[in-house]
Design a binder for these strands. Structure first.
Lengths: 345, 345
DNA sequence: GCTGTTTAGTTAATCGATTAGGCAAATAAT
DNA sequence: ATTATTTGCCTAATCGATTAACTAAACAGC
């Protein structure tokens, strides 16, 4: 087992002090008036030995870790994993590493992990907050730690938030339905008071009121998320109980999946028996037959904004991002599932 | 900004030494003969202040970090993110954190990140190795660091590997095709010499030879992975060039997606014009019309085995896992895409 | 009363870096 | 020639924990 070499070993071997080596390694040779000759001697020897400074020690001394903590609802969710991937890519370029973790939207898990992040002294936080995390986030702000929230936020907190216009996303989808003459439009969402879901609901109700429609809403408990079959069963029941529904909007990607399964099980034909739009696009929606219309979130832009805001703090004047809410627009990707099939109708 | 409290602050406030506090906090009170009275006094005060030990300092001293480094091909890939999610869940229970990163199967990125993991002193490594990472992995072994590889491995290295029977997975799929009387069966794979792809190819050729069939193979460059459209175009070309093909097997999930798109663009009907099987199942395959037959990898089992092997080293007698290759079985999930449609044929 | 053993802690070195402050030698200024 | 400045590098404290080695007091045994 190759013994680890420390900066002191390097120093001893060259008969200089550890401080000198440290200065050279941190590019402060000129600033600290180390001669060019010495600098070369050290650099050469360091390269030859393949010495790598111990980040843990460095982190302890400087209080910086070059790590960003990222807390999402679930890394297996394609929406979050796609953003995670983009964020990671950008972080990598700036010599930061990402430390992901999933909360499953549970307050306790989120608190635990956030604690672990703090203990590890991560330099910045990217958080998709579950309910009840206000205090912890306020704590980060109080301690002057850079935080960026995305997907949802707490209106009461002075954080930097990157979100999409959930209200408008749903509203656009509704207008599309109405334009194609659908009158009885269902909305399947989850029981949640978080901003993103609340805004989606508002968008639905706004459209319903504006157009004088009858609302048909089904709320699924969030706790059912791991149990796809149960969600499918509930949606099936909802559609059976409300046979008038001729179009339905699903408020999240996993609800859409279960909803499509429910529709399949009921033997209904899309879009002739029932039209469908999902919130959150999916690589596969274009391949479905019929292809599925979706409200697409701008994944690339979200990732870019998240990183831009966070990096401005990390590399800049160490200030907090400050209270700022950046609202990005969604895009309705119109496919076959939301318009009557001209061939058969 | 709340000043951070250290173990010395605690000690001073209680008029004891830092060592005593440390012993109590690490549950060594009895072993180190600290009185119950003192123990309670310290615990109470620590709880009251909400003191949390600095993990970085602890890590520097002990050389342990309670972090596991996980290197996958791409965190946005549903196969890897599902495994990551499971692994994370188990690690969490054992008080370990996971540090993910994506390599995009590039040697240089993988080396970089592995270096960062080492610098951070992660306690264990879970790796899906890109080509050319042999030396670095051997280096981990030489330094007695626990490593588990999965999905693919290097036959020359004495590592613990968790893989699936890729050969048999493909072979089963081929047998299924043959059973349903398909004779001209295409195989779309990527240009790669890594074990998992090599074995899938072997499975195909074995079946082709055994049944006396004509091989139709299309190799896609791995570098095209980010460019879905190009892959789609190549597959389209392949199918057009080989009109005899009546069934096709895709060797990875993203090839299947592009392949389905190609088939859609060609206006072919599945399974009547062309039958399809994909390697790697997908949440959505059951919802496609027709639903897509797939070779499912046992995600849960893979994650369990990975963690079991790694944890045995971490919590146990600090030995390496040793050379051991655990081969799990795939399961052919038969759906509509691979058998002639009884209604119309 | 003197030695040996427990009890209940304490002291100080250590992990591997960073960095403010110091100091001797060389060079410049007067 | 003497003082001032610059050059070039070193000393030692520090970050916040862990832990081997030690000690002082209390108690036991003969």
């Amino acid at each position: 087992m190759k013994k680890k070499v420390s900066i002191h070993d390097i120093a001893k071997q060259l008969n200089v002090s550890a401080a000198t080596v440290s200065f050279v390694l941190n590019g402060k040779a000129t600033e600290k008036r180390i001669s060019g000759e010495m600098e070369q001697r050290i650099l050469k020897h360091v390269k030859q030995l393949g010495y790598r400074p111990n980040r843990v020690a460095k982190s302890l001394r400087t209080g910086k870790s070059k790590i960003i903590g990222m807390l999402v609802e679930g890394i297996a969710d394609p929406f979050f994993s796609a953003i995670a991937r983009n964020v990671e890519e950008q972080a990598y370029k700036l010599d930061y590493k990402i430390f992901y973790a999933s909360t499953e939207n549970e307050t306790r898990i989120a608190k635990d992990i956030l604690g672990a992040f703090r203990d590890t002294q991560v330099d910045g936080y990217i958080i998709v907050p579950p309910p009840g995390l206000e205090e912890e986030i306020q704590g980060l702000i109080d301690d002057n730690l850079p935080v960026v929230l995305f997907d949802r936020y707490f209106p009461g907190l002075a954080t930097c938030n990157i979100i999409v216009d959930n209200f408008d996303g749903v509203y656009q989808a509704m207008r599309h339905f109405v334009k194609h003459d659908y009158k009885n439009i269902g909305f399947v969402t989850i029981h949640s008071t978080q901003t993103q879901m609340r805004d989606r609901s508002s968008g639905y109700y706004h459209a319903v009121n504006e157009k004088g429609l009858t609302p048909y809403v089904k709320m699924i408990g969030f706790d059912l998320k791991p149990d796809q079959e149960k969600i499918t069963a509930e949606i099936k029941q909802f559609l059976q109980d409300n046979p008038k529904i001729e179009a339905v909007l699903f408020a999240t990607n996993y609800l859409a999946i279960s909803g499509l399964e429910a529709i399949k099980q009921l033997g209904l034909s899309i879009p002739n028996d029932i039209a469908v739009i999902g919130f959150d696009d999916n690589t596969h929606f274009s391949l479905f037959s019929p292809s599925i219309t979706a409200v697409a979130q701008p994944i690339r832009e979200i990732s870019d904004q998240v990183m831009q805001q966070l990096m401005a703090c990390l590399t800049g004047n160490e200030k907090l991002p400050g209270k700022k809410t950046i609202v990005l627009q969604t895009k309705l990707i119109i496919r076959e599932s939301s318009q009557v099939n001209k061939l058969t109708s």
